Simulated assay, not measured.
Amino acid sequence: MECMKVLIAFDGSDNSFKAVEYVGEIARNCSGSEICLLYVERLPDKDLFPDDESWKNKCGDTERDIRQKLEEARDKLVDMGVPQEEISVEYFASCKSPFHDKDICSTGRSIGMDILRIREERGFGTIVIGRRGVSKAEEFLFGSVSTKVVQSAVDCTVWVVS
């Protein structure tokens, strides 16, 4: 089977793990694939914390948790038969992160648009994203990352897994 170049938009949810499994089922039968597990950092609202230290602690806890889940997702792909050298993991930090000082970072305005930008810059032909389990009312009021990706994607394939 022809190799794939797939970007998995990962947020640590059950549905993002389902997206990983879906890709693993297909990619284990391909050789020479390129699979990127991408997490776009979304920082907690600083105003919800009594001080900067509490906010930084929450940011650190969240990052450790997500990095662990990214490694679990990578291990899942490897266990399913995808060669480890075909898998990359990227933690795309927020520009406002208290821990990362990068030239290229997420502005936090639209995770969906960050995903699409990375897909285009790196030439991924397929985006795989788990549907976040929000209600129709919440999706209407606040939108969702998967909806934004589906509505704005151009010149690529988008798989939404739920």
Rank of each mutant, 00 (worst) to 15 (best):
D61C: 04
L37T: 01
R28T: 04
E21G: 05
K96D: 13
A73G: 12
W55P: 13
D75G: 01
G108F: 05
N15S: 05
G12T: 02
R131N: 08
C59A: 08
A93C: 13
S106C: 06
I104H: 15
S16I: 00
D52Q: 11
L7C: 14
L77H: 09
K69W: 02
V128L: 11
V20H: 11
Q84P: 06
C3N: 14
R42I: 10
I8D: 06
K136A: 01
G24A: 06
S110T: 03
D114M: 02
G60E: 14
P50T: 00
R42N: 12
S144D: 12
A137F: 04
D75Q: 12
D45A: 07
W55Q: 06
E86Q: 14
E138D: 14
G108Q: 11
D51R: 10
S94L: 02
C3L: 07
E121I: 00
D52M: 09
M113Y: 07
E2P: 15
C59I: 00
K58Y: 12
V145A: 11
I26Q: 12
E139P: 14
K56D: 08
R42E: 15
D75R: 10
F142T: 01
G125T: 06
F99R: 03
K102T: 02
A19R: 09
G32E: 12
P83G: 03
L141A: 11
S97V: 00
V134F: 15
M80N: 04
Y91C: 03
I104V: 13
R117L: 04
K5I: 07
S106Y: 11
G143T: 06
I87C: 04
E85I: 00
R122L: 04
S135T: 14
F142D: 10
V89A: 13
I129D: 04
E138L: 05
S33V: 14
R117G: 08
E34T: 15
Q68I: 00
D11N: 15
V89F: 05
V150L: 08
F140A: 13
T147I: 00
L70R: 02
N29L: 01
E63R: 12
P50K: 05
G143K: 13
I104N: 15
S135V: 07
I129Q: 04
F99L: 07
D51F: 05
S97A: 03
E85V: 00
R131Y: 09
D103N: 13
G125L: 04
C95S: 15
G108C: 09
D61Y: 14
L38N: 13
F17Q: 08
V150W: 09
D47G: 10
G125V: 00
A9Y: 10
G108A: 09
V78Y: 12
C30N: 10
S88Y: 02
S152Q: 13
I111M: 13
D45Q: 11
E25C: 01
K58H: 11
A19D: 12
E120M: 09
K5P: 07
E63I: 04
M4Y: 08
P50Q: 05
S97Y: 04
G60F: 09
M80G: 02
E86A: 07
G81W: 03
F10N: 08
E2F: 09
E120H: 09
M1L: 07
M4R: 13
V154Q: 15
I127T: 08
L37K: 10
M1C: 05
I35T: 05
T126Y: 07
F92V: 04
T62A: 12
F92E: 07
G130D: 07
D47Q: 11
L48Q: 15
D45M: 08
R132M: 02
V78Q: 14
S13W: 01
E86I: 00
D11C: 05
A73F: 04
N57G: 03
